[in-house]
């Protein structure tokens, strides 16, 4: 027993020594709120610090000349954490209505950071837009957690171990999970490769998948060609869309899901057929393994039921913000 155990240990160690340990590079946590806490006197900051309702009336102020709608508390425009006003274009009037609904449905004492998902996403969109304008105060850029290049590089890391690129072993769930993954993921991966080809001069774009049966348990990394194409795609996005991509990627742990959501909310006439999908399908793709786990072992209270709503509310929030009227 002991010698064989030692031998097994030796094999593992030798594999460990031979494999490049790229997966442990820059392993700081992602998805944490990097915004530096600040004391800018804005409504959003005041709310997050006191969690008390301090206003009487929420209203929308429509500026017809400029074509903008401002969200106001007792006649004063609400400011984002960085101090920009929450003002949206006239063309996004339904979004403005929903923002107002969100604020007017709050009641004191129950206000938590998760009570205003739409406002927080829109505030992020606006802040990113403002900090990306030339001549922006570098301090503000630092407060939001770096400029859009930093965000792009962070998001790119999700493409390496994308939820949609990792396949379960065949022997789990009698192969049902693997079959479902094959059926759902492979067409999307193919479509995604075709989509990324638009952003690259190379024609052989291949997304590296991580198959538990072949590759076992290890890290995954995409080729530079894929990374450059993905970077080029992100550069083609407006700061507003980049914030939505970020939200979706962090929610689903999948870069591909983020692209799917954004592209399906644009003009879908030119979209590759394999990428055409709806939000429910995106949620299903991102949580496929959990769905099978719940089916087999049962739903755990205070975990599965909450998470299920959480991912849905976040995805639909992103979809609402991405919609162009």
């Amino acid at each position: 027993m002991l010698p064989s155990l030692r031998k097994g240990c030796f094999i593992v160690n030798s594999i460990r020594l031979k494999l490049p340990r790229f997966y442990s590079l820059n392993a700081q946590p992602l998805g944490t709120d990097n915004t530096i806490e600040n004391n800018t006197p804005t409504e959003t900051n005041r709310l997050s610090k006191t969690s008390q309702k301090f206003w009487e009336k929420v209203s929308l102020n429509r500026d017809v000349e400029k074509g903008k709608i401002a969200l106001q508390l007792d006649g004063r425009t609400i400011k984002t954490p960085l101090g920009n006003g929450i003002i949206v274009d006239n063309a996004k009037s339904l979004l403005a209505y929903l923002l107002k609904l969100e604020w007017s449905s709050l009641s004191s004492l129950s206000i938590k950071t998760h009570s205003l998902p739409l406002t927080s996403l829109v505030a992020r969109c606006i802040d990113l837009q403002m900090t990306n304008e030339p001549g922006c105060d570098p301090q503000l850029v630092a407060k939001i957690g770096g400029n859009s290049d930093v965000i792009k590089n962070q998001l790119l890391r999700y493409l390496d171990t994308d939820t949609l690129l990792v396949f379960s072993p065949m022997n789990e769930f009698e192969g049902r999970l693997r079959n479902a993954q094959n059926e759902l993921y492979i067409p999307i991966i193919k479509g995604m490769e075709e989509f990324l080809r638009n952003f690259s001069s190379e024609s052989n774009i291949r997304l590296q998948i991580l198959d538990a049966d072949i590759h076992g348990l290890r890290g995954n990394q995409q080729s530079d060609i894929v990374k450059n194409a993905a970077k080029k795609y992100m550069s083609s996005l407006s700061p507003w869309d980049l914030a939505i991509l970020e939200k979706t990627v962090l929610t689903t742990k999948s870069f591909i899901c983020g692209v799917l959501l954004l592209e399906n909310k644009k003009d879908t006439a030119n979209l590759i057929p394999a990428l055409k999908t709806d939000m429910d399908n995106i949620v299903r793709a991102a949580t496929l393994e959990t769905i099978f786990q719940v089916e087999k072992w049962g739903e755990v209270e205070d975990t599965h039921d909450v998470d299920k709503r959480d991912i849905r509310r976040k995805i639909h929030t992103a979809a609402i913000a991405a919609f162009k009227q």
């Binding site: 998760h114 849905r312 639909h316 609402i320």
Partner: peptide
């Protein structure tokens, strides 16, 4: 539909 689902899920979540 997105709006409906967002509102429902947000409410249920809370």
């Amino acid at each position: 539909l997105d709006i409906i689902k967002f509102l429902d899920n947000q409410r249920e979540y809370e």
